[in-house]
Each structure stands twice: as structure tokens, then as C-alpha cells.
Design a binder for these strands. Sequence first.
DNA 1: ACCTGAACACCGTTCAAGT
DNA 2: ACCTGAACACCGTTCAAGT
Lengths: 226, 226
Amino acid sequence: MIRMKDTTARTTRRTDALSKDRIIAAAIRILDREGERGLTFRALAADLATGAGAIYWHVANKNELLAEATNAVITPLLDNLPPHHDAREDLRAIALGLFDAAHAHPWLGSQVLHASWQLSVMLLFEAIGSKLTQLGVPREARFNVASALVGYIAGKLGQETANMRNSPAGMTRETFLAMAADQWKALDPEEFPFVHEIADQLRDHDDREQFLAGLDLMLTGIAHMA
Amino acid sequence: MIRMKDTTARTTRRTDALSKDRIIAAAIRILDREGERGLTFRALAADLATGAGAIYWHVANKNELLAEATNAVITPLLDNLPPHHDAREDLRAIALGLFDAAHAHPWLGSQVLHASWQLSVMLLFEAIGSKLTQLGVPREARFNVASALVGYIAGKLGQETANMRNSPAGMTRETFLAMAADQWKALDPEEFPFVHEIADQLRDHDDREQFLAGLDLMLTGIAHMA
DNA sequence: ACCTGAACACCGTTCAAGT
DNA sequence: ACCTGAACACCGTTCAAGT
């Protein structure tokens, strides 16, 4: 590694000094490129041009690193939501924002699942809950309804993340789904009538549309609560 | 290790021979006791009194092992559903059966999440889909609705599994939730009104009841679909 | 206070060698 | 055909030693 003579010490604060924020930014970069398996303390240290152990001075362990990376993606996303019009539309925007983020960051889904009562999920509860109030959901029901929406969103994000990770060895989503559809189609229609019926739709469905359809189902439920 | 003189070779088939089923059964035993982190090819080999590499003759890798363990739990569960009365009640029974299974097997949730289009999820689709037909959900909507229910169930199971795994170092669920509730309660009520409002309910809510409330919300949505 | 990097205690997986 | 267990290529984490 080339190390230039340090003639630029104009400020006391070295621009390349390690910090929690720089570590998290590098972690996200690696996660996005290589996935969760690619994020290694060694790889991270190499990227930051430091030793593996140095990272532990700023971050307790890998779990905290992943939790912070999740917060770093979710916090600005929920802070920069477009100004509100209709509460239903706002809920759709929140959900779709997260869904699209899970695509840009193919590790986010499994983290949101594991975050249950942590910062990022708390922010999600707050964002959703305020809209529920606007929708007129009665106070006693709000926690359950918000938890249902969070559970649904987390589940779908988790499935998306799993889908992106699982496609075995450079197989496209299309060929992978086609294989699954063929298997479903090959099942006995007497024993598995529904799966058989659905196989063709599986082949070329849009995950994003399906995600939104499920969300709308829940919004319909909210509109007709007892 | 004590090895008795083999005077019992009455049959050609050794009762202690390795087989895929015995491996999976042992894997489930270890998973239930030690969690996903405890399932190791070395621990599994020790439990089966064999070498670590022997397992690879019957199972391709750890992913397949986990997928088979998931199938082994879910298949009998969905096969032995009580005879149907009301389609709504049947859907509740399916969902609750899975939720309770995720409690008995504190690793099942994350696996169901990762199984997307595999056997165990296909069986779940079939079980749910047949009830949707009974409920009169129109054909074009069935795939989306089933996918929404599967996504919700998978998400909640995944959260449950994460909750059970995360409680740090022998902390009970109660104290863990109390800590989270205290943190939420300590937030600025101006900035986080909803989370603040909800904090007390978080402390002593019942996950199972909340799971069922969310399911009922979706069933209400189904009943009022356009 | 902050960083280095070797060392420790593990992993999943492979594979020559055995029966 | 099936099993053994050492070996390989990794991990996360710790910690004495440096600056």
C-alpha cells in the first residue's frame, strides 16, 4: 500500500480517521455489493484500510453493526416522506418506500425482521401509527393494527431479501420462478387444486404489485373494522 | 465410548444405521434445544455417533438440512388439521397452528421466511387457498390474497423467532419488553406521540392475541373486497 | 484514546482412505 | 454403498502491544 508523505496536516482532524459513521457507511457499501455473507470484519477492515480489531473500538459486534446499518437506511427514508395528502396514500408510500429500499439493499429485509422493538421498527411504528389515528382507528385497536401492518411489511421484505439471496448461482428471477411454477404445475391437480391453479400466475407475477395488493387488503379491513 | 460386542445382528438392517430421516430428527432435536446457532455438523455428528462428513452423504448441505427440518415440522401439522367447519375458523386454526409451532420450535420462523416457493410454503398456499375458494374470493384475486396471508404469517413467525433468539443472555421476555417499553415511554411525546401512547400496551401485550387480531383484520378485508 | 494484527476458538465443506 | 476424520479455507472476537 502506498502511503504519501503527510504534508497535508492542515487540520487536527484527519479526514480518514475511523468513526462509527464511516464504518457503517462502508458496511452498507459491502452489504449492497456482496450481500450479508460478504460483510466480514476482515473485508470491512480492508475496505477501511485498517485492522480487523480496530472496528471493535467503535462497534460492539456484528449484530450492532447490522442494526446500525439498518437504522442508517430506514431513518432518512422515514424522515423524508412526502408531505401528507390522504392517510391511505401515505401508508402506501411508507410501505412502498420500504419495499423499494429492500430491493436496493438486498439484506434489509431480514434485518427489519430481527429488529422487532429496536429503533428502526419503532420509527416505522410511529410513521404508521400517526396515519392510523388520521384514519379514525379507535385508540384501543391502534397497537394491534399497527403491529399487523408492521408484521406484514416485515414479512414481505424478509421474503424479498430471501428471494434475492437464494437464486442459486447466477440464476435469474425469471428462470427460478419458472422452475417453481413447473414443479407446482406438475403436481396432482386432485391433491393440490389451488397450487395447480396458481402456478401460471406465479411464473410472471409482479412482487411489488402483489405486495401492494396485500396492503390494500389490510386497508380495506381497517376501513371496515367493527 | 462404550461399544458392546455385537451379538444382536438378528436382522440385516442395523437399527442405528444413518438415514436422512434420522439425521433430520436429530437436527430438529438440536435446533429445539440449542437454537439455530447450536446446529453444527460436528454437534450433529456427535449426537448421531458418526463423523461429520458422513452426514454429507445423505444431505447436500446445511441449507437443505434446515429446509428438510422445516418440512418435517410443517407437513404433518398441515396434514392433521381438524375437519373443516367454517372457512374463517379453519384459516384461524391454520395460522394459530403455525404460530404455536414457531413457539415449540424457536427456529421455524426464519426458515419459513426463507422457504418462499419451497415445499413447506407450497403446502401452506394450498391449505390457505382452498379456504379462500370456500370464502368466495374471486379467482383472479386468490393468488394475491393467499400471498398476503402467507406473507403476514411468515412475517409474524419470523418476528417471534427473532424475539426468542434475541433476548440477551437469559433475560426473560417480560424484562426485555419492559426495557423496550421504558425506552419508548422516555421518548419526547411531541415527536413520537404514537409510540409514546403505545408503550404501556407493549409492556404486557400477548403476541398470540395480537397475531390473531392482525389475521382477523385481513379476514375482514377479504370479506369486504371490491 | 485509538489502532494493529496475530491468536483463539470456532465454523461448513471436501476428500482420501477405509469397510 | 456408506462411513471416518483429518484438512482446508474460512469466520467473529479478543487482546497484548504499539502510537
